[in-house]
Design a protein around this nucleic acid. Sequence first.
DNA 1: TAAAACTATACTAATCGAGTAAACAATCTG
DNA 2: CAGATTGTTTACTCGATTAGTATAGTTTTA
Lengths: 134, 134
Amino acid sequence: MIINQATDYGFRAVCYLAQQPQGEVVEAHTIAQNIVVPIRFLLKIMPSLIKAGIVKSQRGVGGGYMLARAPQEITLLNVLEAIEGPIRLNRCLIDPDYCSRNAAAYCEIHDALADIQKKLSQEFDRYNFADLAD
Amino acid sequence: MIINQATDYGFRAVCYLAQQPQGEVVEAHTIAQNIVVPIRFLLKIMPSLIKAGIVKSQRGVGGGYMLARAPQEITLLNVLEAIEGPIRLNRCLIDPDYCSRNAAAYCEIHDALADIQKKLSQEFDRYNFADLAD
DNA sequence: TAAAACTATACTAATCGAGTAAACAATCTG
DNA sequence: CAGATTGTTTACTCGATTAGTATAGTTTTA
């Protein structure tokens, strides 16, 4: 019921990139310093954001990271799912076989959780980084 | 971002009790069998529900558990908080000093998460066990 | 007073989270 | 093209948490 530290750092990193002039490439150590995150940990997180099409990277001298699309097109949900996968409130919502009662198909609680989970995703999706970076 | 197994079991236990005739005392092993939960684990969870005023217990021969108040007065949020404490999406929402940037006071992300967290609590609070037990 | 029930506390094994390390691959510059 | 720079990949560690088990204790009632 708590987001990962990595996700928190991911939010900060994307927010920081959204605050840079458009097209500016920022290297990892600069990002890490500004958002106050251990650089090695940040370096491990970034590839997830790249695979999700949220940021782009450039290697070699003068390399670094930049957003891969407009900040208003990136939501908290996008970053969260890129780093820790889809939101799941309960394991039975991923794998019905997980339920020790084998009741996923008719369980009222299952339905309620599925509903809440959907609402939660929508809430995370309401926030984009153009607004957050202000 | 996922609820505890204990919370899941708590939901089931309260739901099962809500399905019993009013005032009926049900012993732990009966509950455990019906909701398919290890009895020792269930026995460990129940005291949290008692402390939260959700169920009552009776010791000795013929003892067991019953709801402490009407099912419509018990929500998913009540049970969740009884078992795993208040919902917190991020540690900085409990303890602002936790933020490695020390930015909780002015961080836009912090505000967004606080907002989402509030909505999430409200969602869990919308479901009561009179409805869930149908 | 003995058995039946819940309570409290401590223990354990497995998993997960956060962070570190090291070897590697790409890119630029002189 | 050599070497420095910067990101990538994968593996490792250590501590915390989770899920569950065990045991000794307390209350109640027949």
